[in-house]
């Protein structure tokens, strides 16, 4: 993918996430496009790029979020790193595998956010958090991940970068 296209996607991410995506929210839960972008970046471009993408996208999200600054940076950077490490095990992927990995990553991301809240503020019941936020979000992200894979990655024929070549080179 062209570097400038990627930058454009990153810049459009927050406006889309904060406006249009509310139209498709179910019980106030919507897909997390930032997590999807970080997952695909990490999986296809390696853990370092995933980590960097998580940092940048997380910072943008934190600016517009009601949570403490750097929470999204931390959780998305971890997500980018993990998706990159997961990507090392697969040469290529399918929609089903993508959905499964996005589900796991989203659930882990949710548990990290919950742990942070519990540590800083406390008073949140884990079962309630799973029921109302973590699980619905993971399921929604899983579905959105499948759609993104089917509509974007699969059709655009984006290949995983090899370890010895720099990803996101401008062409």
């Amino acid at each position: 993918m062209n570097r400038w296209t990627y930058v454009l996607i990153v810049l459009l991410l927050v406006p889309v996430q904060t406006t249009w995506l509310n139209e498709i929210s179910l019980h106030a839960v919507k897909p997390d496009l930032a997590l999807l972008l970080v997952y695909f970046t990490g999986f296809y471009a390696g853990e370092i790029n995933g980590l960097l993408a998580g940092w940048v996208v997380g910072a943008l999200m934190d600016l517009f979020s009601g949570g403490p600054f750097a929470l999204k940076i931390a959780t998305l950077a971890v997500a980018g790193l993990l998706s990159g490490l997961m990507g090392r095990f697969f040469l290529n992927t399918t929609a089903a595998l993508t959905m499964g990995m996005v589900f796991l990553l989203s659930a882990l991301n949710g548990i990290l956010v919950f742990s942070f809240h519990q540590w800083v503020l406390g008073g949140i019941e884990f079962t309630e958090a799973v029921r109302w936020t973590i699980l619905p979000e993971a399921l929604y992200n899983m579905a959105a991940g499948g759609i993104v894979f089917w509509a974007g990655v699969g059709r655009l024929n984006i290949k995983k970068s090899r370890l010895d070549e720099a990803p996101f080179q401008s062409r």
Binding site: Q17, T18, A28, D32, M61, F64, G66, G67, V113, E137
Partner: peptide, 14 residues
């Protein structure tokens, strides 16, 4: 109102 929280963990408006 020009936007809402990007995260599912917080309920905010811009």
């Amino acid at each position: 109102v020009i936007g809402r929280d990007p995260s599912n963990w917080y309920r905010t408006l811009m």
